[in-house]
Amino acid sequence: MKIKFIKFIIFFIIFFVLSIFFVSLNKDPLYSTKDLEGEKIQDISLNHFSKNEIISNQDLKKNKFTLINFWASWCAPCRLEHPYLVKLNKEDNLKILGVNFKDKKQNAIKFLNDFGNPYDYLAKDTTGKQSVNFGIYGIPESILINKDLIIVKKFIGPLTYNDYIKIRGAVKNE
């Protein structure tokens, strides 16, 4: 009896391990920080792009929704998503905070002149240190937060048409 039980256990373990392996084959090997939706963003303190000001929690708490968009003039995919940002700018419940990431000021200004400026707030992060506080690991990345500064959605890589629709939907529901 005891031996039978041990045999059963051994088979069960082997079976369990192998079936986990089989399932794991269909998992996406790439990592994304999307698990962090629902977390709160703390201690926002960004330098204003041109003025000697700080953009902080207080500024963003006024808005129903804020889309924080990390971009740079040297980043090619940022050009792809830019038209959607311009469109989103028209949403009533949404303010857009652009964070210019490791960029030169002239280039950034030229970029906005060329493609339009969708940003209600414009901040800069010349060293990239601030981006760590937002959990950014490559740009473009966008974070949609609500008035409690809780992450509603994270978009890694350029915004697509689907993302645009999603953001509009999320903002409208309010």
Binding site: I14, L18, F21, F22, L25, N26, P29, Y31
Partner: peptide
């Protein structure tokens, strides 16, 4: 299935094959 420095171009169909082979071997010998 694992993230490693040593990248072989990955392809799940290989995984299924090796894993089936492995399963037969383990169960057979067990």
């Amino acid at each position: 299935v694992l993230n490693s420095v040593h990248t072989f171009a990955n392809d799940p169909s290989r995984g299924i094959y090796i894993l089936s082979f492995l399963s037969i071997m383990i169960f057979g010998s067990a």
